[in-house]
Design a protein around this nucleic acid. Structure first.
Length: 561
RNA sequence: GCGCCUAUAGCUCAGCGGAUAGAGCACCGGCCUCCGGAGCCGGGAGCGGGGGUUCAAUUCCCUCUAGGCGCACCA
């Protein structure tokens, strides 16, 4: 099934190129090759439905003025297609093509036929891709950075699925290493304190309320029996207990945020299975490691990183980086052709060395794509509110969902590209105000549902797109809607290629806006049966595409609001 | 000092090398005897500075300035 947009673009392409070949045979222009050119929807409506820069790009090789070339092309195209209303030359040599609506109307039967699948494209071709995101530290609750990562990662995964990739969502559980050690010491200290003993939280420890809560629970169920237990053993118990508790909470909170993972991958398992050691051994065998100051180093600087990195510390414990190398090796060994990581900006220094490590292991580092999300800055009362996970005062993902709802939060996070700093105005987000654009989009959907309900109540039959008199759709607002609907698959393709789901929130707003404009200028329910039928088909199409877009973004499309 | 990200309208942001740089919010003025006014229509101003590449630069490159974030035997 070919989409209207693709079809018309390839049709225009062959028209243009045929015209050029014809001109060459007639000796009107000289060239050896047609350059890379674009056929695009111009920003300004008055510049036509499609425009191309072909003539300008050929100017150099053909040694002719761009407008002159455009004239030759246009002359050879005229009347070559029944879909072209008019074609003209503008500005420095643009060829603007105006289409009649005959190419647009088929989009409605197509949407009706494809339903939830409208917009699916196949640029992925079933390629196995993994998206790893959130991977929040299980030592505490999820913060705003995790929330942004969750919204982006899940929508990106859905987007890639829509684009024909075979996607797996994965969460990496940092349940080993130094911070777990600190976590254990912090829990132990709180345990002792709660039972009236002297104890201190380590310098890099966890000071949050949640640590105390965990230990209160332990005391409730286990009493003071750990007072005389070996420190190592009781910490193991505490850590195990608290990590499970935290992970359950993380899973629950993410589920409420509309995010579910296919795989929860434990860092600890890499230590236990020996994969971590194997990976280090491979690097050793390749002669890419060396010992210095009692630690084992990886010569990362040979692979584009700024400096070498420690793999195994002086105390014999492998670093996070070492485990992460093993983890990424394991991902690729599991058969993913491409792996996408979503990391916070504070991890960007990790990118070069991670890619370097993969290269050192003999993998193509291009198979790893890292999306860095810039920090989320919280504003409260117009002032910057620093988020701190360890003070216990930070706004968590769960708080956010409770306060502003999943839909608003996910829309908000996906409104901007990952590499812009996100100012999150808590007051605005917390308030149920109409400023929040998600309502605008959802309202369009609900409005359509309302019309359809009334039609049903009145016993009016909605025609199929094939039966309807679609040629009656000729109001400007109707044509604009049709164009927007037809662009949707292209929007998916572009967003997926760039790994940028935020384009879809903008698309949703634009489509909603066009619908509201249409709604105010055209009545759907009228005495004119044929016109009403056609309009019912178009609003059903809008409803479907709004729903498809919102679904990718993980946002509900309500029937009523 | 080195590295990554950012700099576009009063504010928050789009802008896929091209034509007169767009939205939303805020501000002002209009629009419901009629399908949901959470809506629609109209109204102003702007690419941080300097070089370069190009027929064409907000877009690519260099440099400067400003802000954020990194630069651990933390993760």
């Amino acid at each position: 099934m070919k989409y209207a947009v693709e079809q018309i673009q390839s049709e225009i392409k062959s028209l243009l190129e045929d015209a050029l070949q014809k001109a060459r045979m007639e000796g009107k222009i000289k060239f050896t090759q047609i350059p890379e050119y674009i056929i695009e929807v111009p920003r300004e409506k008055i510049h036509g439905d499609y425009a191309t820069n072909l003539a300008m790009l050929m100017a150099k090789e053909a040694r002719m003025a761009p407008r002159k070339i455009a004239e030759i092309i246009v002359k050879n195209i005229e009347n070559a297609s029944s879909k072209i209303e008019k074609i003209e030359i503008a500005g420095p040599g643009f060829i603007n093509i105006y289409l009649n609506k005959s190419w647009l109307l088929p989009v409605l039967p197509l949407i009706e036929e494809m339903g939830d699948d409208y917009g699916k494209v196949n640029i992925g071709n079933g390629k196995k891709v993994q998206v790893e995101f959130v991977s929040a530290n299980p030592t505490g609750p999820m913060h705003m950075g995790n929330a942004r990562g969750a919204a982006l990662g899940d929508s990106l995964a859905s987007l890639l699925e829509t684009a024909g990739f075979n996607v797996s969502r994965e969460f990496y559980i940092n349940d080993a290493g130094n911070q777990i050690e600190n976590f254990g010491l912090s829990l132990e200290a709180r345990y002792l304190q709660l039972l009236g003993h002297e104890a201190e939280i380590p310098e890099n420890g966890y000071h949050g309320e949640d640590i105390i809560e965990h230990m209160k629970e332990i005391i409730k169920t286990e009493g003071d029996r750990f007072l005389h237990e070996d420190s190592q053993k009781r910490r193991e118990f505490f850590v195990n207990y608290a990590l499970n508790k935290n992970l359950d909470k993380i899973k629950k909170d993410l589920k409420n945020f509309g995010v579910e993972f296919d795989v929860w991958f434990s860092e600890k398992s890499l230590h236990e299975s020996g994969k971590l050691q194997q990976t280090i051994d491979i690097l050793k065998q390749k002669g890419l490691t060396y010992e210095k100051d009692g630690a084992l180093w990886f010569a990362a600087s040979k692979f584009g990183a700024e400096k070498d990195e420690v793999l195994i510390r002086q105390n014999g414990i492998p670093t996070y980086f070492a485990a992460d190398i093993a983890y990424h090796k394991d991902k690729l060994d599991r058969g993913f052709e491409e792996i996408i990581d979503i990391w916070g900006a504070d991890h960007h220094g990790h990118v070069a060395r991670m890619k370097g490590a993969l290269e050192a292991l003999g993998y193509d580092p291009e198979r790893l794509k890292v999306i860095i999300i810039q920090l989320v800055r919280l504003y409260r009362n117009g002032e910057l509110a620093r988020m701190s996970k360890r003070t216990g005062k930070a706004v968590t993902l769960a708080d956010l969902v409770e306060e502003v709802g999943k839909d608003a939060a996910r829309f908000f996070f996906n409104m901007r590209s990952a590499d812009t700093h996100l100012d999150f105005d808590l007051d605005l987000a917390v308030s149920k105000s109409a400023d929040n654009p998600v309502y605008y989009v959802q309202y369009a959907h609900a409005r359509i549902c309302s019309i359809l309900r009334q039609v049903e109540e009145r016993g009016i039959k909605i025609p199929s797109a094939e039966e309807a008199y679609l040629e009656l759709l000729e109001e400007p607002s109707e044509i604009e809607l049709l164009k927007k609907l037809a662009e949707y698959p292209e929007e998916i393709t572009r967003s997926a290629q760039k790994l940028e789901p935020y384009h879809l929130t903008r698309y949703a707003m634009e489509l909603a806006s066009l619908f509201h404009t249409f709604y105010n200028s055209c009545r759907v329910i009228t005495d004119d049966q044929k016109l009403m039928g056609a309009r019912l088909v178009i609003i059903k199409g809008v409803k479907q595409v709004l729903k498809n877009t919102l679904t990718i973004l993980g946002i509900s499309a309500p029937e009523r609001m």
